[in-house]
Amino acid sequence: MRYWLIIIGLTLNSVAFAAAPERVRIKGDSYAPFYPGADKEEQLVEDFEMDTFPVTNAKFLAFVNANPKWQRGAVKALFADASYLENWPSPSSVVGIENQPVTHVSWFAARAFCDAQGGRLPTEHEWEFVSRADETRVNATGDLAFNQKVLTFYSKPGSGHIDNINQTPANYWGLHDLYGLVWEWVEDFNSSIISSDNRQSGDKQESKFCGGAALSAANTREYATFMRFAFRSSLKSSYTLHNLGFRCAYDIKSE
């Protein structure tokens, strides 16, 4: 009910947007993650729900209004750096950018938002699992054309301008804009080290950063996926970037 009120509130958006549900259910399955585990190739992703679109500035403003400690200017440096919500016209206004994905948000802020909706950030496995889909297939990553499309987005230089949500058709799961608008936070963004583990004490740089990761990737053709992992590993939880937003995930309540 609440969702429909919000959607009615955003009447100026496209018909397709108004028709899309607020969140969709994802049927979990085993999948082969980019970094396979030490003793298994497959990773199980449980059923969950996910926001259809990235969270918009309008929605984030409603959250900030209800939780003033997350206002621009009020947030402590541990939780968000100095460019937090810096693209907003004022700390309490999103005029003109209502339906753009919220960016300039830290991991902490994204997490707090999802928590307030009864959700959480998706795990990396959940995000990667759903992002393999194109419009018709659960897993399109074997298709060069699909990979090329994703890479094209990743290689676009950030101009600072971000379009409104609902720029891309729904994928197999009914999710929009996983690619094309912004990068998205995941709960365990800081897990992307690295093949070298606690047992290795070789070259620290190689084990801590990118090189080590390259050597253990399961499918070296997946450049796009690799770039996401590289991007995430460069983040810190207080960072707020102009092209980094998020969407929430929700556990399925047992009935």
Partner: peptide, 27 residues
């Protein structure tokens, strides 16, 4: 798990469970 992820993030510790009970992590 959420609290562990959070404190790791502010200490700049990266970690991943690579198999049941085995973690790859920054020292």
């Amino acid at each position: 798990e959420g609290s562990i992820r959070e404190v790791a993030s502010v200490l700049n510790v990266q970690y991943r469970e690579v198999s049941e009970g085995q973690f790859s992590h920054t020292n």
